[in-house]
Amino acid sequence: MTEFGYFLSCEDFRPAQLLRQAEQAEQAGFRSLWISDHFHPWIGRQGNSPFVWGVIGALSRTSRLPVETAVTCPTVRVHPAVIAQAAATSAVLLEGRFRLGLGSGEALNEHILGGSWPAADVRLEMLEEAVAVIRLLLTGEEVSHRGRHYTVENARLYTLPEIPPPIDISAFGPEATALAARIGDGLITMAPDAGAVRRFRGTDGSRPAYGGLKVCWGRDRAEAVRTAHRLWPSMRLPGELQQVLPTPTHFEQAAELVTEDMVAGAVPCGPDPEEHARHLQAYVDAGFDRVHVSQIGSEQQGFFDFYRDSVLPLVTRDSRDVPDARVTR
């Protein structure tokens, strides 16, 4: 059966609020946590962007749920050797309940040190080398590496978990999915794309696929649509804009092209459990192992009550009738 987790949005909330949401998610029946890793929010109205590794350290003491970064970019802003150390420490603190989600990143977060932002094919090449470096360091051996993009000299991690954390790869599009299939322990994506899941798994049906979904619960659907449009219009920007725009101001300018109707058609909004369940069921039908849901806006307790009482029971009941919803591990 597909499991459901909660997606902690660092762009929208301060650290203490995120820790409280993790507790609320566990109480509401969610089984795991995703947490975003950004230097900037997408737009200024979101208003936050704490350092993810500090929040994960606090989560290790306030939540019993598994935690995964969704996703960290280990290529430009932070060297992969440093990400390896952060991931190893997180896995120790969480006692094996940590997965490392990695992706090729966005200029919004990665250009801040003044370097150029590479083309898409170069970003994927950098990600592949970065993952190789991280996996080497997680063995606990001393590593020296001189590759096309990264140099590591006499590096060794001394604080290590008993088992290295799995590394899942975020993919949008066929090239990234092919890379995820080659180097990833699992797939991360934000659309219920059954074809991407099949391409990722290939002949290995045991590798998990994890999806994410933004929602906006509220008692009034029209008001919920306005909230989603005000805070997350960037979700509906086309093509590579999300990867190449450099600042929240640029995203705000581009988002002027996004209408409320465009958001309403993509984001389940309001108080109808059937609407929310339909969107979740699309991931179940596509064969995802886990779906992480993120509530847009300040109505957090109402959302958790709504999902606990009305949505999760509906979807978990329906998913038992889907023969391919659960993948044998």
Rank of each mutant, 00 (worst) to 15 (best):
G44M: 12
Q24C: 10
S116A: 15
A70R: 09
G103W: 08
W34A: 08
E95K: 15
G115R: 14
E95C: 06
P80G: 06
L65F: 12
A28D: 02
G101V: 07
G47R: 07
A88I: 07
T72L: 10
A81D: 05
A88Y: 12
I35Q: 03
A86T: 08
S90W: 12
R97H: 09
I35M: 04
V55N: 01
L59R: 01
H40L: 10
L59H: 03
A87R: 02
L65Q: 09
H40S: 11
W42V: 01
A70E: 13
A87F: 08
L108G: 00
E106T: 06
I43R: 10
P41K: 04
G29F: 13
G44S: 15
L108K: 02
P118N: 10
E110C: 06
E110M: 06
V67F: 03
T69R: 14
H79R: 03
N48H: 15
L93C: 01
I56S: 02
E110T: 04
S32E: 08
F98V: 08
R31Y: 11
P80I: 11
V67D: 00
N48Q: 15
P74S: 07
I56L: 05
L113T: 09
W34L: 11
W42F: 14
R45C: 04
V55C: 01
T89F: 08
E106P: 00
V67M: 01
W34E: 01
L102K: 07
Q24F: 10
W42R: 02
Q24S: 11
S116F: 15
F30V: 01
E106Y: 09
L113F: 13
A88L: 06
P50W: 07
V76E: 14
C73F: 09
L102V: 15
P74K: 10
L113D: 14
E68A: 15
H38R: 02
P118V: 06
H111G: 02
R31K: 13
F39S: 07
E26S: 14
G103S: 08
L100N: 07
N48Y: 14
A86V: 01
D37L: 12
G54T: 03
E95R: 12
L33N: 00
A58S: 08
V52H: 01
I56F: 04
S104V: 10
L33W: 10
I112L: 15
S36E: 06
G115H: 15
R64G: 13
S63I: 01
